[in-house]
Every structure is written in structure tokens, then in C-alpha cells.
Design a protein around this nucleic acid. Structure first.
Lengths: 343, 343
DNA sequence: GACTGGCACTTGAAATCCGCGAGTGCCAGT
DNA sequence: ACTGGCACTCGCGGATTTCAAGTGCCAGTC
């Protein structure tokens, strides 16, 4: 029996199972896919595939369903790339282009990704640590308060209000402002943070207290882990597709979706390994998260050629349309990256 | 048979049903609550209560469960207020006080509210239209771009970048900045928006194009509906409590949670009617949203004494712990209001 | 008149049983 | 290497039964 046909059978099983959600038997297989052989032959192939761990039967008298290993094989070697239609591409592009600010871009990305894939979509906000400083503004407010505004290359704006001991005079603020700008604009945030430390020394000792508290607050803002953690989630209504048993299938995912830490782990590792062309796919236990049996994550970094801003992706049942999902994630990542890179 | 005892029975039924999630029969009732009468007597009361529409039986041979009308009666006249323990109050307060910015306050509120109530929590961001302008800053960026930053009384910061035809000179920007500040600071956003319109005329015709595009962008920002629509949702894993049937019980709620419009309607109407001390409770059809049968919303406006900033609340099954939920919503609203009012 | 004990009746939920059919593995034959 | 045939397995759906919780009502008591 040929290795080649056996893989063809595996592909057929995955496709049918994804389409019907039901275990697929040898008869149905030959009927729907014109493999030129009889059911009995297929049965032999299936037995071998089962021995090799690619498929399994839920119970003796049922058809086969793919295992995680089976899906893995499908994704790696069998799936044919399914490009988005140009109409779809244009729809995504114009929908995203209509956004008014970064927040809006992210919101729209989540929405469009959820709709395209019929899955749960998650989009990480552009990372701060990976962006550069575009501009910084100091604004003296009433009663010894100063507002700090930081604009990053990705268009994100962070602000912070500093409470001072005494109201600083205008020249000091102006001076400080221009020095800060000189020291940080164009730098990546971690470097900018370092440069800031040196500024303090250049001021008269009398001004030090004020300068120090402003600079340290700014520095904290640059290295703020929390703001790296922002993530938007959408399409949770699609959780229905995960299965009927709430407690084993749906609940764990819902809980994970509320734990940014978990989400970040799921997304964060997407960018690291071999820089694949395609989005990264993790199936079942590959997600490294228990309760995610039966769940697969498709994720892709986004950004410009020069820098990766963050990651986005979808979470769905392992029995998903991989080619379609991969295409959608990939397309959305491309457009979001393009839009946010321009600012 | 006394009216008084009948209401006592209703209260007992609600409490037991909320606790056990199971229809409650006459025997169980007399056992758990020391009403000094026999099951038979209770049965008579129950028959009457059923005639009056406060309770119903799912099927003939089962116990009774409260109807929406029954819950309504319970909430209005039977529920005893359950204050939060001072430990709980302190926990809420310190947790919320740890927030670094408005965004963080909202995130934390959602989290704490969801945890306290074991329900889905929703918190609306402070409304723009109801706040006043605290400060406005214009910053000339590179290449004919100007950054607008608006700080509102509630601490929210909105920013927008304007692309101009040509780079404005510094004096113009400074002049415009001070006039804008004079015209808007301290005003509510809608009024500020009106005042802005008058500014344009006071500039030399040559400067009009630049002034106009800046001012109109600002004006749009003030009246931006979208930013009023921001809502944070949390505790969706608690949806499990809604019931076991995903499609009829959980799905509709999940879908509603993704539709800000719906959420806003649910929350938005909380502030309008008779200004009750307590949070507003809407039960089942009272939510005015189909698919919300079996669902109740507890919501409360928050803000300072002077102004209402926005609304927050929880969504849960009608069989919820009303006293506890009301207390939690009320407490969180109070603390969030206090924190955001200070800025 | 209000309450109670007793009793016949209803009815859904859980347990049990059964037949059907899809699907399998294996074997002998081409 | 493939195929047709066949005996076998076994879960699912439907029907049937049992069980017990709960009710409504009535006659009797305080």
C-alpha cells in the first residue's frame, strides 16, 4: 500500500471531519473523494494510520477522527494554502483603514478576524518596548501637577500625571521638556529610559527634586510591563463551535481569555521560533496549556519589515478550517502591520 | 391565611431556589425555615402565590420556582440589605486605589466586580459628554502634523493627530493654543465644542485653513460618540452559572456582550429613572432585550456628588443573590466614583 | 376559620432494555 | 496489492418501566 495514498486518505479524513464534525468511515470516504479504490483498501490504510497515531476511533463501531498528530501532519504537509479572494482582501483593508486611532485599529482587527474565521480572535496592542519614542510633551497643569504625554512610533499615546511638591516655574518645565526630547526621541523605549537617567545630573541641585520625580515617572512609563499586556478579545460567541460540553470544552477557554498572562504566553511565543512565512499553528497540547485539549491557536506577529509590533491570532477547536484560518490571520496581520507602521 | 406569612413563604422560596438551583417543595421549605406550620398549610399559600403570579412550577410534579414577578417582589419588598464587610470594603478600596490611570481603574473595577458577584461585570468608561475640559495641548510635530491632547475632568486623555497642508509657524500655534484653552477649559464638552466654532473668525484669513482643520478636529473629538461607547467586560467565565443549555442561555448573552450598543442600552438606562438610592435592578423582560429571559441586570451610575460619570453593573441569571449583588455593585460604584472624581 | 394529616394522583427523571445500523477487521480470492 | 464478503462489535435512539417528589383536596381537629 502506497505511502502517498495513505497521506491522501489522512487529508480526506481531516477535511471531511472538519466539514461534518462527525467521525468518518471508509465508505463515506470513497464516495466523497474519488480515490479509485474500494472501502476495504481504505480500511487497511486507516488501520495503518491509526497504528502510526494519526487518527483514532472514538469507539469501536465508529469512524475515525484525526488526532493532534494527525492535524499536525495535515498542517505541515497536506494543507493547500487557500488565498483570500481579492474582494475579501479589499474588505479587510478598507474596514481597517477606517479606524481613527490605534485603539480603533485594534478593535476593528479583532472584529474582522473573528468574523473571517468564526473563531475567537485575540489581538495584542503594539508593544511599547519594541517601539521608539516619537514625541514627548510636558504640560503644567493646575496645582503642582504635570502631565506627561508619550507618543510612540506605533501611534500609541501613554499619559501620566505627576504630583509634585511645589509648582515648577515655566522655564524649568520648558528646559526639561527640550532636554528630554533631545535625549529620547527616536530611541527605543528601553534605551530612552537609560538616557533619561543622565539628564537629572545636568540640572541645578535646587531643581533636582522636581526633575527627578518627573524623569523617574517617565522612566517607569517606558518600562511599564503592564501596558505591554493589553490585549483585545472578540468573537467569544463563536465558542459555541468548541463543543457542547460547557465545563470541559468552553469554560477553560473562557477562563484563559480572562487571564492576560495566559493569552500573552499563547501569543508571545508566536514570534520567537524559526521565522516561518506562515502563521504559527499550535494544536492541542502544543499550546502548552492544559484545558486546551481540543483547542488550537493560530498566531502571527505583525508589524513593518523593520520591526515586530506585537502578535495576533485566533483560538479555535482543533477541528477547524486550517487553510482558511491561516490565510485570514496572515492577511489581517499584514494589513494591521501596514497601518500601524505608517502611524 | 395571613398575607404576611405568604410573603415570608415567597422570600423563603426565592432564597432556597437561589441557593440550590432546584425547584423547592413544601416539605423542604418547612424544614429549612422554621415557619411554625405544616407542609399542607404552606401548600395552600403556594397555591395562592401561584395564582397571583409570583411563582410557578416547571412541571406538575415539581416544586415551585419564582417568576420574574416573584423576583421583583423579592427585590422591592423582601430582600434585606446585605452590607459588605468592612474587610471586603477595604479590599475593594485598596485594590482600586492601586490603579495607575483611568484605563487601569476600569480594568480593576471589572475584575473586582466580577469576583465579588461571580457574575459578568460590565463597566462603562467615564462619559466624555458629561465631563468638562481640564486642559488642552497643541504640539507641533514634524512635517506639518499637529498633535491634539485633551484632558477631561475625569482624567481621560484623548489624542488626535491632524495632518495640515503646511507647517504652521510657532506663534500661530501658541496663539491658537491659548485661545482654545480660554474658550474651553472648565466647560462641558458639548459647550466647549460650540465655543470653538467662534474662534475661527478671530484669526487672519491667511491662517484660516490651518486653524479650521485643527479646530474642527478638536470639535469632532469632543462630540465623538464612539468614545462614549467604550465598555469593559469581565468575568465571562461565570456564564456557566446561567445554565447548561448553551444556545438558549449563554449564547444570547455572549452575543449581547459583544454588541456595545446593546450593553450601552442596558447600562445607559440605569441612570435615568427615579434616582433611587440603590442600584437599579432589571429582571428578565424588564431588560427590554429578548434573549435575556432568565437574565437580570443590576446597574448603578457612578461619579461624584456633582456629576454622573458613567454606569457599571453586572449581568447574571435571575436566580442570583440579589442582596449580595446589589451591595457589591453599589460598593464598587461608590469607590470608582470617588477615585475618578479626584482624578 | 385556620390549620393539619392522610391519601390518591400526576409526572418528570433515571434506569433499563432492545433493535438498528454504521463501521470494523479479517480472510480468501483475484 | 487490491477487493468482496462476512461475522462481529458497540454506541445511539427510542420505548418501557420504575421511582419518588410533590401536589391538590378532603375530612377532621383546635
Amino acid at each position: 500500500m502506497s505511502e502517498e495514498r495513505r497521506l491522501e486518505v489522512l487529508r480526506a479524513i481531516v477535511e471531511d471531519y472538519v466539514a461534518t464534525q462527525e467521525p468518518v468511515g471508509s465508505r463515506a470516504l470513497v464516495e466523497r473523494h474519488h480515490l479509485g479504490v474500494s472501502p476495504a483498501t481504505i480500511r487497511n490504510d486507516m488501520a495503518t494510520l491509526e497504528d502510526e497515531g494519526y487518527i483514532t476511533q472514538p469507539h469501536t463501531s465508529a469512524g475515525r477522527i484525526p488526532t493532534d498528530k494527525g492535524y499536525r501532519m495535515f498542517v505541515d504537509r497536506l494543507a493547500t494554502v487557500k488565498a483570500m479572494s481579492s474582494a475579501e482582501r479589499r474588505a479587510i483593508e478598507t474596514f481597517l483603514a477606517g479606524a481613527v486611532d490605534v485603539d480603533d485599529v485594534i478593535q476593528r482587527s479583532v472584529k474582522v478576524l473573528a468574523q473571517l474565521t468564526n473563531q475567537v480572535a485575540i489581538v495584542q496592542y503594539p508593544s511599547l518596548t519594541r517601539s521608539t519614542v516619537r514625541h514627548i510633551e510636558l504640560v503644567a497643569l493646575e496645582s503642582a501637577r504635570v502631565l506627561l504625554v508619550v507618543i510612540t512610533s506605533s501611534g500609541r499615546v501613554e499619559q501620566r500625571i505627576v504630583e509634585l511638591e511645589e509648582t515648577p516655574n515655566e522655564e524649568l518645565v520648558a528646559d526639561l521638556r527640550s532636554r528630554i526630547i533631545r535625549a529620547t526621541v527616536g530611541e527605543r523605549l528601553p534605551e530612552a529610559s537609560l538616557n533619561l537617567a543622565e539628564i537629572i545630573g545636568s540640572f541645578a541641585p535646587g531643581d533636582r527634586p522636581i526633575v527627578t520625580s518627573i524623569v523617574t515617572t517617565l522612566s517607569q512609563t517606558f518600562s511599564n510591563e503592564r501596558s505591554d499586556e493589553r490585549i483585545a478579545v472578540g468573537g467569544t460567541a463563536n465558542l459555541a463551535r468548541f463543543g457542547t460540553d460547557f465545563d470541559t470544552a468552553i469554560r477553560p477557554v473562557l477562563e484563559a481569555l480572562e487571564e492576560q498572562v495566559v493569552l500573552l504566553k499563547l501569543l508571545g511565543e508566536a514570534s520567537r521560533p524559526r521565522p516561518t512565512e506562515h502563521p504559527r499553528v499550535r494544536i492541542g497540547s502544543e499550546t502548552g496549556h492544559e484545558g486546551f485539549a481540543g483547542t488550537a491557536v493560530v498566531s502571527s506577529p505583525y508589524g513593518s519589515d523593520a520591526e515586530i509590533l506585537a502578535t495576533l491570532g485566533t483560538v479555535g477547536p482543533t477541528r477547524m478550517d486550517y487553510p482558511g484560518t491561516i490565510a485570514a490571520v496572515s492577511a489581517v496581520a499584514r494589513y494591521v502591520g501596514r497601518i500601524l507602521a505608517d502611524g
